Simulated scan of single mutants.
Amino acid sequence: MATEFQERHSGTGRLLLRRVLQLVTAAALAVSAAVHADLAPGYDAIGAHLTQGTLFRLEAAVAALAALLVLVAGHRRSVWVFAALVAASALGVLLLYRYVDVGALGPVPNMYEPAWFPKKTTTAIAEAVATVTAIAGFLTARRPH
């Protein structure tokens, strides 16, 4: 009897945890998407064929897709991997170009910007949160049988 009760409530707790992780991860990815989309027009002049504005729009679209997938298919471990990769790569690129003048890399323009400003800080925090919660979501998602 106690075992059945524990199993039922641990399943409820696991589901609640997954829902919280889904909501927090999706919200953080949505913040990243919104900030990138909002900033994109201001970066359209940086770069020749491939502009930083275009890259920001692409990041916004991928982050929005990851947020949507986390909400609708958060039971799948692959979705959590995708969300973690999207968030971690965005944060990594932001930090790289904040602290290192990499220069242009092929078609990718030089995006070095050695300053913090509110929207940049907001998206960095959101991407860090999304990375951590997506990893937690992956670790708590059931393995396929």
Rank of each mutant, 00 (worst) to 15 (best):
M1W: 14
M1N: 05
R8A: 07
H9K: 09
T12K: 15
T12G: 13
R14Y: 12
L17N: 07
L17G: 09
V20P: 03
L21F: 04
Q22K: 03
V24R: 05
T25E: 06
T25F: 06
A26T: 01
A27K: 05
A30I: 05
V31P: 01
V31T: 11
V31Y: 07
S32Q: 10
S32M: 08
V35F: 12
H36P: 02
H36E: 07
L39M: 14
Y43L: 13
Y43W: 15
Y43V: 01
Y43F: 15
D44S: 09
D44V: 01
A45L: 08
A45G: 12
H49Y: 15
T51E: 11
T51V: 09
T51S: 14
Q52P: 03
T54R: 12
L55E: 09
R57K: 10
L58H: 06
L58R: 01
E59Y: 13
A61C: 08
A64F: 11
L65M: 11
L68S: 08
L71W: 00
L71V: 04
L71P: 10
V72G: 00
A73I: 08
G74S: 11
H75M: 04
S78Y: 06
F82P: 04
A83R: 08
A83M: 11
V86M: 01
V86S: 02
S89L: 10
L91Q: 06
L95A: 00
V100M: 00
D101G: 12
V108L: 07
V108D: 00
V108N: 10
P109Y: 05
E113S: 11
P114N: 03
A115S: 12
F117S: 13
P118T: 03
P118W: 03
T121E: 13
T122A: 14
I125H: 09
I125S: 03
T131Q: 07
T133P: 04
A134L: 02
G137P: 02
L139T: 04
A141V: 00
